[in-house]
């Protein structure tokens, strides 16, 4: 029976804190087990950071590039949402839009892109931009970039592909649309050479938001990740963002606010559950992004000890209601809500 609960839960395995693997090689099977465990528990989505050299240190962080990892994980899971971080400095918008459109088809509508609005230190120096970007330039460039990607994701209408062998009509020419974007930083004609997303378009998750990025988030995001804060300020921040969403002519519920939390669960799971309940019931957020080491033991603590408490209290649903990520998140376009 569905308990009608509306809290959303993401899990973010932290890079650099993986379980020691007997093999020296990066271990895909550990990550696969981690995500399968989260899926068995009904978690909405897993978010993978992408650790292109932020610090310049030589410590191996997440051992795979995030979009390739998500492609592989998509084939060993069937319900859970899979979100990869990908940098707007490291990729051209056309290439990034293609990669995620393709991930979305591979995963049957479970993919999302985590775009960060914060510049990673040193990254630009590895991508032929040694001078980097000023804060203002980076913000304007990011917004333009996100608009291009979302536009490209809608270049093919839902019913564009005809597959009509006898009539010789593979697709309907009227249902393919050029983007013809010409902006300050990019010009992109389009369309994408990947079909329309099974969930309408991949989910856009924005993180690294400063106060001045909130209008961009309100205009474009499906999910925003915000840092942990005390209830009062979290509530103010949440309400402010939802007002901005409404001001853009969007349903306030079209943007889900997930708060980043890094719980220490082992001793007192009820304390963690209490805190999440308080934050959620005060309408400070729509759910949580649980940041934890990439260890099965850390995930087990959460799904065995905290999740059952949240379910008993009617806060988190018993099981998946749909098959794609938009439907898990209660976002429009999910189709099978």
């Amino acid at each position: 029976m569905d308990n009608g609960a509306t809290m959303h839960l993401a899990v973010s395995p932290l890079p650099g804190i993986a379980e020691p693997s007997p093999a020296a090689e990066p271990d895909f099977s550990l990550l696969a087990r981690f995500v399968q465990r989260a899926e068995a528990a009904g978690v909405d989505l897993v978010i993978f950071a992408d650790s292109a050299p932020a610090s310049g240190s030589d410590v191996a962080t997440m051992p795979f590039e995030a979009t390739t990892l998500v492609a592989a994980l998509a084939t060993v899971t069937s319900r859970i949402g899979l979100v990869a971080a990908a940098s707007t400095v490291a990729h051209q918008p056309y290439n990034l839009a293609r990669r995620f459109a393709s991930l979305d088809i591979i995963s049957h509508g479970r993919a999302g892109w985590n775009a960060t609005m914060a510049q990673a230190p040193r990254e630009a120096a590895n991508f032929s931009r040694p001078e980097g970007f000023s804060g203002d330039d980076f913000r304007r460039r990011s917004e333009e970039y996100v608009g291009i990607v979302q536009g490209l994701w809608q270049g093919w209408d839902k019913d564009a592909l005809k597959f009509d062998k006898i009539g010789g009509r593979f697709h309907d020419p009227e249902k393919m649309h050029l983007l013809d974007h010409k902006g300050e930083f990019f010009s992109v004609r389009g369309p994408l050479n990947v079909a329309r997303s099974p969930q309408d378009r991949p989910v856009l998750v924005l993180s690294g938001l400063s106060a001045s990025d909130m209008d961009i988030a309100a205009r474009t995001a499906d999910v925003v990740l915000l840092d942990d804060e005390p209830i009062e300020s979290a509530k103010t921040r949440h309400d402010d963002l939802k007002l901005r969403v409404a001001a853009c002519g969007r349903d306030p519920d079209a943007v889900k606010v997930l708060m980043n939390v890094s719980p220490v669960i082992d001793d007192r799971p009820a304390v963690t559950a209490d805190r999440l309940e308080d934050l959620f019931r005060s309408k400070s957020c729509d759910g949580f992004n649980m940041q934890m080491p990439t260890k099965l033991s850390a995930l087990d603590s959460f799904v065995d000890l905290v999740l059952p408490a949240l379910r008993r209290r009617g806060l988190f649903r018993e099981s998946y209601r749909g098959t794609n990520l938009r439907s898990h998140l209660g976002l429009a376009g999910g189709g099978d809500l």
């Binding site: 895909f28 696969a32 979009t67 390739t68 990892l69 492609a71 592989a72 998509a74 084939t75 060993v76 293609r98 990669r99 459109a101 393709s102 991930l103 088809i105 591979i106 093919w156 592909l161 010789g168 009509r169 593979f170 697709h171 309907d172 020419p173 393919m176 050479n193 990947v194 079909a195």
Partner: peptide
């Protein structure tokens, strides 16, 4: 020319790096 491309199957497909990453574990 969309009149031509719509008579072929070449206009849409998987992006190959994501495709091969999926095949890698299969």
């Amino acid at each position: 020319n969309v009149a031509i491309s719509s008579q072929t199957s070449r206009s849409i497909g998987f992006e190959p790096i994501s495709l091969l990453s999926a095949l890698a574990v299969q």
